[in-house]
Design a protein around this nucleic acid. Sequence first.
DNA 1: TTTTAACACGAAAACGTTTTCGTTGCTCTC
DNA 2: GAGAGCAACGAAAACGTTTTCGTGTTAAAA
Lengths: 351, 351
Amino acid sequence: MLIMKRKITLKQIARELDVSISTVSKALRNSVEISDDTKQKVQAFAKLYNYRPNNIALSLKNRRTNTIGIIIPEIVHHFFSKVIRGVELVANKRGYNVIVGLSNESFAKEVINMEMLANGSIDGFILSMSKETLQQQDYHHFNETMSQGMPIVMFDRVVSDVNCDKVIVDDFNGAKNAVKKLINNKCKSIALITTKDYVSVGKLRTQGYLEALEESKMIPQSELILKIDDSLDYEVHLEKLEAEIEQLFKSNEKIDGVFAVNELYALSAMKVARKLGLDIPNDIQVIGFTDGVLSKHATPSLTTVSQHAQQMGEKAADLLINKLESENDEEEERFQTLVIPTELIERESTK
Amino acid sequence: MLIMKRKITLKQIARELDVSISTVSKALRNSVEISDDTKQKVQAFAKLYNYRPNNIALSLKNRRTNTIGIIIPEIVHHFFSKVIRGVELVANKRGYNVIVGLSNESFAKEVINMEMLANGSIDGFILSMSKETLQQQDYHHFNETMSQGMPIVMFDRVVSDVNCDKVIVDDFNGAKNAVKKLINNKCKSIALITTKDYVSVGKLRTQGYLEALEESKMIPQSELILKIDDSLDYEVHLEKLEAEIEQLFKSNEKIDGVFAVNELYALSAMKVARKLGLDIPNDIQVIGFTDGVLSKHATPSLTTVSQHAQQMGEKAADLLINKLESENDEEEERFQTLVIPTELIERESTK
DNA sequence: TTTTAACACGAAAACGTTTTCGTTGCTCTC
DNA sequence: GAGAGCAACGAAAACGTTTTCGTGTTAAAA
């Protein structure tokens, strides 16, 4: 059985060494006010008992916790977990901790989570909005939090109605370049598999698709655009997804290229294509979005648009911490939007 | 430009209403000591200014933060992120926050992270050890933390040298049942693709493999066992991995079954098999470990051993919080090990 | 009228720090 | 030998709570 020794405090050291608390505190911080003798004595004692200042007490005194809160819709997700990794990396490097809240795509949980953390637990937020929040367009919790002096950095799923720092992917150009790649590869009939429009990123990617077609004087055809209702969890409705795609392929046999706004749609498209006896990439070429583990390990491996999720997390964390540590108020008032360029990662699903 | 209204405190309410701080505090908690008049006045004012008690001050006073720390080797990982989800779920339900630290498989970072959090920031740990820690077998940071009265719950990667609560997967029986499944499916020559032995879970799964063979009077053959050195990041050494598997297959053409201790090994095995012209599952059947996104969406989809990661996280969180909130010291001293049963999820890679 | 009890509230300590501002003794200077 | 100056330390406030223990006022009981 181990001996229980509770964490030692300044007060206990002071009592033990028969000096005041102030003296101990100063001695440990190597203050010139304290004689070398006393310093040595105190520091030796502190080391012996492995003294560490209590973070909570420090937070209360300094009115800053050196902790940042990150709120995301889902953590079992390649993109979001990579963002967290980026945040944690620079947060740790700069002396901050990271506290995680999951909204699970629910507006109510997002609000609860933020209120729980905003009462002193953290110094600022990094967050990506839930789908429900995007649909309801209710942003009062963001504005209230900010009006109490707590900075917010939003990433990926952002909205222009909220005035704060943002880190976003260049969804429009990412999509556009992907589709242009298909066009350059001689695709004549390119399908789009996307989400309903309320998800901001889905909308932008759709626009990129359209723009690419237009620039190449190709006429967008509505029957080539499949809009999936992703309010239902597509992980469990795989068959439904595949059925819709199969329908798309069957009623448009000339399709020789597919751009999908996420990995799963792209993989499903490949699966359906194979089922219909189409060869990838010879009969049909496929490009997805998000460089996740699926794209890499699929057969054939999937050409995709990488979002540099980790870099997004890093930038967001730097933005937030810079704001937290900026002296001048001017800096604190100016909001910026960082756009992370995408990168087309070519693999086997395209020529 | 939004108006900045800093968070209001008891002191400010007291001053504004010309009563004492104690009165305000009691009024808000509906104490019988306070007259109905005063209560109403105070509560109305507090509501108007959206008063919320400061968490840090509460933590300092109560000497508990209602926050639990979770330290894992990696977050961009299906298993670990699912565990986090489980932890967050019950933590939130029971009024706790979750603060995440990443060791990145490094001993040093694990220690740093724990020391950073152990100084008052959290009430207890949930963690899975880094590979480096497992290799070095240096567990002093765990024991020191616990000797200071901070409980630890370990999951998945545990070690008997540390005496604490644990939540583990039944790796042995999971592996054994998987291999028995292959045997029942008429496999005569079953290969094992595993890791080096210092990773506890890899070792147990290997033992399960051996046990299953023995029970069926089959003789383990060392040339059918491939031990991968996963100290190098296999995500970037895919070709090396595949080359080793190809070598295994080529020098043992009779192999008609493969059990791999993780998803990636299993997928690589399938890829190599296809390359060699083998049909899955007719020529060769494959079973993996960990029910990740790869298993589900691979073609053919992979039969695999599910670890119920989210459930592990939930159990770990309940275990920890129960300990934190237990009154009697007896409960606090008894350590238990929860074994989560595995489940064989049958898909297309087996008959 | 005096004692008691109930009522409504305030003062202060405590949690563990840091920091400002004294307050002692000294030694040195003239 | 008186004042100045310095070295070394301590008291106390502050961060924002909760809670214990007074304390004063008023109404009821003796």
